[in-house]
Design a protein around this nucleic acid. Structure first.
Lengths: 198, 198
DNA sequence: AAATAAATTTAACACTGTTAATTTTTTTAA
DNA sequence: TTAAAAAAATTAACAGTGTTAAATTTATTT
């Protein structure tokens, strides 16, 4: 009976969609078993027939958001720019995604993750999301011998720390207060990492 | 009647002490109006006679922890080291403090702060805690003309982003998994920022 | 010692996540 | 097509959360 499984997947989709809408619209503080159930159109315990618990549902949202973020960054290929330049503009797109969806940033980097269990892979996927999303571009750079593999790894790590730090202070602590200044300093810091000589 | 005020301060102290013990021992997830009240020796609503709400109490803890962190970093002056070297070892002390008290890191950088109001100064104190705690050392460096003011500010900001990023991934996402590796890469990254030529 | 003020506690409310029992709906078998 | 079995969904309930209002106890003044 694959019909049954299809049905189950559809209903899970209703919950995931409802949860994503609440997360993007009102934030994780408004996401409760009751609120998501109501939006999905079910009573407040039916959800336990389809998800282990609320965290389980949230994990599906995280995977969806990761894909959205990746598409947002890699979607519009800027055409004929050089390697590091296109990487930089992609990093700025990555930053813009989380500025547009601060709840997703919270979900990825702030939210305390309990019940790791079988979700460790997803955790790693999102903590390394910047690296993962740009992996092809970095590989290409190495293949064209524009950078050495070891240097790429160092730069990847440095970018992860700095970009996450930038977003943490801007989204979570409103530092700096102005969007324009934030984007300016963000670009400066990224520049300093990927163009270390200048 | 200053006697009355003294009494009030003492009782507030009981609550703050109880809250700090819970935060350090069991983490913020275990800090509730009921748990802190029980440890302070009062019924579960007496707290509202001394604090606006639970967040108000937490803010007093934050200020205490900030002072503790500052003392931990500046307490043991390493004697006759040169400017940047002593700054680096102090930054490593700063990191060690939060590794020892991960709940304090959460309180400082992770916890969503509602009801800003009159607490904005405290927020700024802790988001700029690394800069604030080392300010004298930086000033001395400028006074001795070992660094220019503008460069100091750039390095301060870079350190803030990197150190917070490092702690976020290590404490919150267990990346890297090993303490030794974490401290090694932390020192590397700090080195790269404060000794940019090498 | 009696009246007043202050401090503390109990009761209650509206939330939260989650489990167990019950009811409704859907599927299978005759 | 109707009866039995299985599945799905719902209601009730529990233990927890923060917070307010009313009741009670304690302390201070007259």
């Amino acid at each position: 009976m694959k019909n049954k499984e299809l049905k189950e997947q559809r209903i899970k989709g209703y919950y995931i969609q409802a949860a994503k809408e609440i997360l993007v619209g009102e934030g994780i503080k408004s996401l409760s078993v009751r609120s998501v159930s109501e939006r999905a159109g079910y009573s407040y315990t039916t959800i336990y027939n389809y998800f282990e618990d609320l965290n389980d549902l949230i994990f599906y949202c995280v995977q969806d958001f990761y894909q959205e973020c990746s598409d947002f960054v890699n979607g519009e290929s800027k055409g004929t720019e050089s390697g590091l330049t296109i990487i930089e503009s992609k990093i700025m797109q990555y930053i813009k995604y989380f500025v547009n969806y601060p709840s997703v940033f919270e979900l990825f980097f702030i939210e305390r993750v309990v019940n790791f269990g079988n979700k460790i892979q997803t955790i790693e996927l999102i903590t390394d999301s910047l690296k993962n999303i740009l992996q092809k571009d970095w590989d290409q750079l190495v293949a064209q011998k524009e950078m050495r593999q070891a240097d790429v790894m160092k730069v990847q790590h440095r970018l992860q720390l700095t970009v996450t730090g930038l977003l943490l202070f801007y989204i979570h602590r409103r530092t700096p207060a102005e969007y324009g200044e934030f984007m300016r300093t963000a670009k400066q810091e990224i520049d300093a990492i990927i163009f270390p000589e200048s």
